[in-house]
Design a binder for these strands. Sequence first.
DNA 1: ATGAAAGCGCTAACAG
DNA 2: CTGTTAGCGCTTTCAT
Lengths: 346, 346
Amino acid sequence: MKDKRVTIDDVAAAAGVSRQTVSRAINDLPGISIATRERILTTAQQLGYRPSGIARGLANAGQRTRTFGVVVPTIDNEFYAAVLHGIKDLTSARDYHVFLVDTNEDPATEYRRIQSLFSLWIDGLIICSSRMEDQQLAEICSQLRPVILLNREFIHPHAGNVLIDDAEGTESAVRHLVECGHKRIGMILGMPVSRSSENRRQGYLRAMHQAGLPVEPGWMLHTGAQLDAAYTAGKPYLQAHPELTALVVYNDVRAAGLLRACAELGIAVPGRLSLASHDNITLASLVTPSLTTVDIPKYEMGRRGAVMMLDMLTDRRLQPETIRLTPRLVERESTATPNAKGAPIQ
Amino acid sequence: MKDKRVTIDDVAAAAGVSRQTVSRAINDLPGISIATRERILTTAQQLGYRPSGIARGLANAGQRTRTFGVVVPTIDNEFYAAVLHGIKDLTSARDYHVFLVDTNEDPATEYRRIQSLFSLWIDGLIICSSRMEDQQLAEICSQLRPVILLNREFIHPHAGNVLIDDAEGTESAVRHLVECGHKRIGMILGMPVSRSSENRRQGYLRAMHQAGLPVEPGWMLHTGAQLDAAYTAGKPYLQAHPELTALVVYNDVRAAGLLRACAELGIAVPGRLSLASHDNITLASLVTPSLTTVDIPKYEMGRRGAVMMLDMLTDRRLQPETIRLTPRLVERESTATPNAKGAPIQ
DNA sequence: ATGAAAGCGCTAACAG
DNA sequence: CTGTTAGCGCTTTCAT
């Protein structure tokens, strides 16, 4: 089926040294003469020797497999693709390998798949927007270090955090709408299990409160993650709430769904309804009207997480940090003064 | 740092049997009484025993780590995210784990990272849109089985193929444009290393030839993978070729870049220029005008690849197949009869 | 039906 | 500086 593997013993025999000396040469450890190292490295090269990560992992009793897991709710959302992109470069450069776990937005799947990953003796774990309970996270952290949480605050001696100030981001969006003159502002939320969604809801409530504006319970609507779900749920919501002149939307994907609903209902955006969303993924600038949105530094979040992970792996004494990234409102076409003249979209 | 691992010996001791018997129980192998199996499984459960995939891999001499690699040019493109999505479900259900490799569209990186992955003794490999030379692919296939190639034809006893008839897809797009009445049709290509791009170019040339239409060399333009790259390269191209009334574009991302260039140049789409692209990713239906595009069954491609992989892993005697999926033109707003009246976009 | 022995390929701990 | 001795946790023989 496949050629016999070249093992460390083969190299040792060929170079006429002990297996151990080869190990020292390969791993650049002290206690070996330069000449010997050179010679061994050359023979290893000639034989096409590749150290087995599997055997290394075993011998190390699970210390260093040079692998770690990355967990995302769904790879199908450009947001997480961008985070992964931020993780990738460093990982590739340092010759680590990444197990990708897609949890389908389901906390139970997340927990199960992570536990299963543990049997592979990963060195660490990056969990993006974890939907699990604190207790489960604690259990996972007790089994592994480091665990880097992106977009989810969790305090644990093994856990690092790269956080977005979600509430502040949403507040800036609401303030923008208020400055435009809006008074009746609704909010489209994400999945109930999403922490970001809850944080953004808090930001919305706080900003509305600070502006002295009322909030009706019916003004808030949870929708599924797909564009179609937002479209489907959004249509009756829009019809039921003609009093609203602006909406803060959980993310761009949902905003795009609402845009479609608005178009079909003849609701002009931003003429009759302003829309401010979050994430600033590619489509935010491509849809018509382009979306005013709170930019989340997705790539940077991934990159910083990967840096922390690799640093902690390189020097096990390093303590995990908490990094806070700041979102920033990007004003585009989907927000304007309320009741401005403007024909319905189609 | 972490609790002592529970090993097979711990379970054996607790259950009062040999390590071997535990192994039989865990792996559901014959040669063990039902009662004993039950008892062992229970104690294993109580102890929280999780078999080490690493040790299993080593003991198996690289046969079954329940791990395989998935290689994509760039996770940042929704196309590949969709493929991954198709791979994910089955993988998760069968409790396999996936190493994700992003090659940055670079053949050398692709080769290097795959070789590096081999040290982890993966069971198989799915390579999406490989940019490597046949010779390198052959080398990789000689080291591993199965290797499933998505969107890249390659014949080898270890290699399965899930293919798209790219040329046919492009031909259907060109035929559509010709039927609209276009005579001078250009093409925006992908990266020169992309096989799809080359196949689509062939389809373009063939369809133009069959329609008896001329093709100028200057009508074809290669652009980078990002939207901005297409926008930047597209602008001077559009200005240099006012004779063109329609464009076949390599993919939706690039078409979106061109759309922006057209908007800035005051070129109405489809009024003065029709655009037909490929892939049918989300943004294709969201941009204005929405894109006529050749739908590629991305999710299905990933899913079929994963099915073949897992089938071959389950039954090692199974021979790899070649599966061909058919693209399908989706007509939207970006194509129309040439020279139809219609004001420039802005 | 169960157990004992050997070894997968490597590194850590100790010798020399 | 280099070699020897033990495993890491598991599965495969081969015994019993």
